[in-house]
Design a protein around this nucleic acid. Structure first.
Lengths: 353, 353
DNA sequence: GCCTAGCACTCTCTCCGCTCGAGTGCTAAG
DNA sequence: CTTAGCACTCGAGCGGAGAGAGTGCTAGGC
């Protein structure tokens, strides 16, 4: 039955399903045959629509909360809607310009990403997500070291894509300001343009070379470099606009509000999920049952990868109740992720040129 | 009446008030005369207690939600309790050690502060606050400049107290790596140990000196220095553990949950409030009506300044419903703020020595 | 053969009135 | 000054009645 669930749905049933999904997304209420009949799109009586609806229910696209209620779409119903029935609404010029401005105005990529989740939340009225995974595969432009205290050094890594990462390192040796400056210069020149992962491997290999055994300064350089690259890069996940769920009727009661807020706290699970999504290229929509996380809380996620063509940097998207305006969310997330990617690519050329 | 509300309260009434506050903090329910009589601390019948309670109500320390309910403390009741009746419970050794460890383990002050709000939230089961105001009066140890893109420079300021601040500057001039290094060195040596505020004034004065007019390098240095000091220092306010309010019975219904979450979003108002508090020295407790913000939402705030003796750095504290265990919160906040201050002072000596 | 009117049925939601319990204030007696 | 007793008030909880929405089924019309 699940092998080809799409083809064997006649045009009328498709229209009915679409209308039910649209109306339910709009109102949040179960949709009954009478309501549907009166909407004007069908020249059918409630009784006929009931037959169609019964069929759709049997196929698993609709469900009834209780006997005498209307129908609401199931996860599968939403999925079919997204795949075959949805007509993405294009963004308003206002939305476009808000995004363009926000992205172009900010000077630093970090800053853009920081604001992106809040921006997305505001535009979508859902919870905005921005995920930046560990950056071991990102190419650096420079690496500098600044003494913070005797045995503590702050390492500032600037990526070719304009991303700036700060890491604090505890060191065994003491370094003078001069030494730190020299080491930074050496590493930036020697390893500029290479990925952190590669740099680490090269540094480790260097420890074995004879030259390094006898050159004290080189030894310190390698040691500091390895410390810098090894210091943990944290996953960063911004979850912004959690308060937007306060307005959603599906979370109207205190118990589900509670559950939902707690769920959004579980960042590790979200990180796992987004990390998997990172492998896929286009816009991704996860509906309810399609992942453990979304299933648990009747969430859906609309997300897309961003970053330069060569290397994806992370994910942006939104998370909200299954009943959301996919037709609006999809182009929104899509547009923002493309804007971010463009910004990052510009940065790369700019930084390298 | 409000001129000397404290003295004219006989010992018995004080005991009754204390007991009511304690029991109400514990249960969250209004306390009736019968309950009070049965608790064992008074050899009085409910009827007698009712008389005392009626007096306390007349004085504004107690209130009744409705005619046939018990009494709950008013803001004034809590205030009297805090000033005169409360016996601060000392921290458990476990709590002490958790705080000590968390503070001593972290290497960077920023990191400690970051975690402090979460730690406080965990230990108190309230919402943790950490506030760091703009740092114009903080003394620097060094200032370094790193090129991020052609006209964008990242400035890393290390304070004598170990605080590290990064600021991104857009510049008019282009700088080579060498120049940036020289400028950083010059500023660090010339201005190390001075406050940012002072540095700014000195830099501005220097622009007028004749020497600066003719020395191109000095001109660039001053320009970059001024940009660095002028770039906005943002107030930082961490609000952590908002989910803890999900468990509080006073926010059991969806409407007040909603209101409360939205209130905690209004960071500007909180910043204003904490900034005022920053002037006062010891532990501060704000109950309900005592500030616009706390009044609005039946919040109370327990907070204390932290920082080295010479200059306060910011505020730490908790925010929660008026009905909170003040006797436990007070020493908790007090201890943490002292631990933070100690850490910061150590850092200062370390950094300077 | 598909569509539709009609009907009986089911289920939820809301309102209403009832009772019960807790707590109060007042009064009068110890 | 304390306490027992009493009448009163108010809110929470329970259950039944009724309205409303929606369904499935069946029989008749095009």
């Amino acid at each position: 039955m699940a092998t080809r669930p799409d083809i064997d749905l006649d045009p009328r049933a498709r229209e009915v399903l679409r209308e039910i999904v649209l109306q339910h997304i709009d109102s949040g209420e179960p949709i009954g045959s009478r309501t549907l009949s009166k909407c004007g799109k069908f020249q059918l009586s409630p009784a006929s629509l009931r037959n169609v609806m019964a069929d759709l229910e049997e196929l698993g696209f609709l469900a009834q909360p209780h006997t005498s209620a209307g129908r609401i779409p199931t996860d599968r119903g939403y999925r079919f809607f997204i795949n075959h029935l949805m007509q993405s609404r294009s963004l308003s010029t206002r939305e476009r310009s808000v995004i363009d401005e926000e992205v172009s105005v900010a000077s630093e990529i970090d800053e853009v990403l920081h604001h992106a989740s809040a921006l997305l939340s505001k535009l979508s009225d859902q919870v905005g997500l921005v995920f930046m995974p560990t950056l071991l595969q990102f190419a650096i432009r420079s690496m500098d070291f600044i003494s913070v205290a005797d045995n503590r050094i702050m390492c500032v890594i600037v990526g070719t894509n304009g991303v700036v990462v700060n890491k604090l390192i505890e060191t065994r040796f003491l370094f003078t300001r001069d030494e730190l400056e020299k080491i930074g210069r050496y590493i930036s020149i020697e390893f500029g343009g290479q990925t952190l992962d590669r740099i680490r491997r090269r540094l480790i290999r260097m420890t074995e070379e004879e030259r390094a055994q006898h050159d004290a300064m080189l030894q310190k350089t390698i040691s500091l470099g390895i410390d810098a690259v090894n210091a943990p890069f944290e996953h960063e996940l911004y979850v912004e606009g959690a308060t937007s769920i306060l307005n959603k009727p599906e979370y109207a009661d205190a118990a589900s509000l509670r559950k939902t807020f707690l769920a959004l706290q579980e960042k590790e699970k979200l990180v796992d999920l987004l990390e998997t999504c990172l492998r896929e290229e286009g816009l991704q929509i996860l509906v309810g049952s399609e992942s453990d996380f979304t299933q648990m809380h009747n969430f859906s996620i609309v997300a897309r990868r961003y970053g330069s063509g060569t290397a994806p940097l992370g994910m942006v998207g939104i998370i909200g109740p299954m009943r959301m305006e996919y037709a609006r969310m999809a182009p929104l997330v899509d547009y923002l992720s493309r804007a971010l990617s463009r910004k990052i690519e510009e940065e790369e050329h700019h930084g390298n040129g």
